[in-house]
Simulated scan of single mutants.
Amino acid sequence: MLLATVAVVGLRMLTDRYESTMTRAELLDPSARADRTDLDGPLNYLLVGSDRRPGDAGSEQRTDTILIVHVPPGLREGYLVSVPRDLLVTIPPGGGYPGGEDKINTAYEYGGGGRPGAHLLSATLTGLTGIRFDGAALVDFAGLRNVIDLLGGVDMCVRAEVKSIHTDRVFRPGCQRMDGDQALDYVRQRYDLPGGDYDRQTHQQQLLGAMLAQAGETRLRTDPVRLHRLIGAVGGSLTLDTNGVPVEDLLLALHGLATDGLRGVQVPSYPQMIDQVSYVRLDDEGDGLFEAVRGSRMSEWAGAHPRWVTRL
């Protein structure tokens, strides 16, 4: 009982410290927000990674990463569903945009970036998938560089040679430790990869899994200065919408979610050129995926469609 009390008090202190560094905002459009606040599962969260660069204005941002994080009942496993950035969708009116068909990664920009951009993107996703979200997070991927460095780097397994278009780096096949700059450079590449943007999605999923694994292995409790810096770096990279659930309760509910229980999922789709513009179109299996995410059949869907699932 004493140990449990100490653990809870410690968690409260950490979450209080974290909340003081973190930006809170209502990121979900009302049409995309789940009308419940329990944490029994299944849970669905929207994770949006901004490709913001220094000097960018909010309305000039597009989303480099769109992930649906699905946690089935029991909260012991999780699925990171990557939505292709070039997926052709119907974007509803919002933020001065009149509505129309376009790539899904433009919805955040059309909404004006930030909170209104996340509203329009979440409404677009709900219209496409029927999924209503239990929360959302807007991640500044550039800001994750410091987080990775404070963790001491992450272990990434490169499956095929990747040449960076941003630097002179060449990532050779094999498992290797990457610092923040290397890791973010690696996961941004999509040209000349065997699977193109699908490979980039897998690399981003791997990075998130590697960060969780490294955080679990790093002895942060014995290094309060490092822990304080890490909490500040994480908080400074996130804008969070927990749908009214205290962060402490969310962390307690998800404490049993292990990295070996994570799976990366790609949305079944195919490329198509329309008026000399490259798009991605949803195929029939995609509807089955979204139905599984809305309910409690994700494990069955993953078992029946191994082509689209990767163990992280």
Rank of each mutant, 00 (worst) to 15 (best):
S164V: 03
S164K: 05
I165R: 15
D168C: 06
R177V: 14
D181S: 10
D181G: 10
D181W: 03
A183I: 09
A183L: 11
Y186T: 06
R188A: 05
Y191P: 06
L193N: 04
L193S: 05
G196W: 06
D197Y: 00
D199I: 11
R200C: 12
Q201G: 14
H203Q: 12
H203A: 14
Q206E: 15
L207H: 00
M211N: 01
M211Q: 07
L212G: 02
E217Y: 00
R219G: 01
T222M: 09
R229G: 01
L230R: 01
I231D: 04
V234T: 12
G235R: 01
D241H: 10
L250I: 06
L254Q: 05
L254V: 01
H255P: 05
H255L: 01
G256W: 03
G256D: 09
R263T: 10
V265T: 06
Q266S: 14
P271I: 13
Q272H: 13
D275E: 15
Q276T: 09
Y279T: 13
Y279A: 14
L282N: 02
D284C: 05
G286R: 12
F290V: 13
F290G: 13
R294Y: 11
S296G: 13
S296V: 08
R297V: 06
R297A: 14
R297E: 15
W301F: 12
P306N: 08
P306S: 11
R307Y: 05
